[in-house]
Every structure is written in C-alpha cells, then in structure tokens.
Amino acid sequence: MANTYTQIYVHTVFAVQNWNALILPSWEEDLYKYITGIVQNKGQKMLAINGTTNHIHFFIGMKPTCCLSDLVREIKKSSGTFIKEKKFTSSTFQWQEGFGAFSYSHSQLTDVIQYINNQKEHHRKQTFRDEYLAFLKAFDVEFKDEYLFEWI
C-alpha cells in the first residue's frame, strides 16, 4: 500500500480447551516455532511468544492489511493439527474458542516482550484467570462473565 505507514503492536492470548495442562515443556518450543512460522508466512512480525501448559501469549508487529481474527483462527487451526499430527499429547487437543488482544505503543515493546518471556515465573504467583481479568480491566474492555473462557 503506497503512502501507508503504520506501527501496530498486538499482544494476543488464548487457552487450551477446558484448561487442560497439555502444552508440555518437551514440545512447547516446537509449537512456538510452528506458530512463529504461521505469523511470518502471513507477513507479520513475531516479537515474542511464550506461555504455560494451558495458554499462550504472542506479541506481533502487525501490518494494516492483516485481519487479526483470521490470523488467530489460522494459528489455532494449523497448530492444533500440528500437535495432533506430531502426537505431542495422547489427550484430545483443542484450543478454546475466542482470544484476547491488546494493543501497545512502540515505547512499550521492551516491557511487553519481557512480560511474555517471563510467563512461567509470572504464573507461579498469579493464575491465568486473574491475569486475563486484569488485562480486560486495565484496557477497559467491557465483558460478560458468561462469554469469557470456560474456567474450570
């Protein structure tokens, strides 16, 4: 797009269906590399990706031609298939419906990247549910409890 200049940074979060702790340390790096490949193949820039056994955070530099919902749908679909094909888990693997997405300014890049890179340490002190609700409140996102992730 000629004469189009943007700086769009989006932090996206989604979870494993039923909060099952299925993302194991033995293969999570393969999953993150796979998801990074999807992001890059769609012309976006992966800035950070990490998570725990039951959810993932990723942070991208996004072009204005990208539809975030389509990107997340593709990531969930393709990575779910990847996990099944690689037989990383004997349990049925599925991502929960929906996701959270939060935008940041260029001056916040380092802090957000560090936050995502420190997910495992962070979640020793705070549950994902509490973290997610804090994001929604901090970004002043209106929500209804019945439409949040299925908390078990």
Rank of each mutant, 00 (worst) to 15 (best):
T6E: 11
K137E: 10
G51H: 00
F99C: 03
K76Q: 07
G51V: 04
R129V: 02
F88Y: 14
F93I: 05
A2M: 12
V10P: 00
K45Y: 11
D70P: 00
T6L: 05
F143N: 07
I60P: 03
G61C: 07
D145G: 10
W151T: 03
T110R: 09
T65R: 12
N50Q: 07
S107I: 08
G80R: 09
A21C: 14
D140K: 13
T36R: 08
F14K: 00
S107H: 11
A2R: 10
G80Q: 12
R73L: 08
H55V: 02
E142Y: 09
T89G: 02
T110F: 02
E97Y: 12
E29D: 15
W27A: 06
D111L: 09
H57Q: 04
M62L: 09
F88H: 04
G51N: 05
K63H: 10
K42N: 10
T81Y: 11
D140T: 09
I8P: 00
F93M: 03
T110M: 06
K125T: 11
T4K: 14
Q96C: 07
R124D: 11
L136Q: 02
K63Y: 08
L22K: 09
A15W: 01
Y104I: 06
Y147I: 11
G80I: 04
A2E: 12
D130G: 04
K144P: 01
I38V: 14
L136I: 02
A15K: 05
G61L: 07
Q94V: 09
D70H: 08
W95L: 03
L71R: 03
V39T: 05
F88T: 06
E97V: 13
V141C: 12
I152V: 15
L71T: 06
K125R: 15
L71E: 04
S105T: 08
T81K: 15
K87L: 02
R124M: 12
D145W: 08
H106V: 13
Q40N: 13
Q94L: 08
T4G: 05
Y34D: 05
V39C: 01
H11E: 06
N118P: 01
L136K: 06
Y132D: 04
Y104D: 03
L136V: 01
L109D: 03
S69D: 11
I56H: 01
E121V: 07
T89S: 11
G80E: 10
G43E: 09
T92R: 14
R73A: 15
Y132E: 01
H11K: 02
G61A: 12
T89R: 05
K63M: 09
N50T: 08
W95R: 03
L68W: 03
D130K: 07
F128Y: 00
E150F: 14
T81I: 15
I60F: 00
D30H: 13
D70E: 13
H55N: 01
S103W: 04
V13I: 14
E121H: 11
A21G: 10
S69W: 08
N20I: 07
N118K: 14
A21H: 15
F59T: 00
Q17V: 05
K120R: 14
S90F: 12
K125W: 03
T12P: 01
T53S: 14
D145I: 14
I23G: 01
L68R: 02
H123S: 02
K33Y: 13
N20M: 09
V72K: 04
L31H: 10
L68E: 06
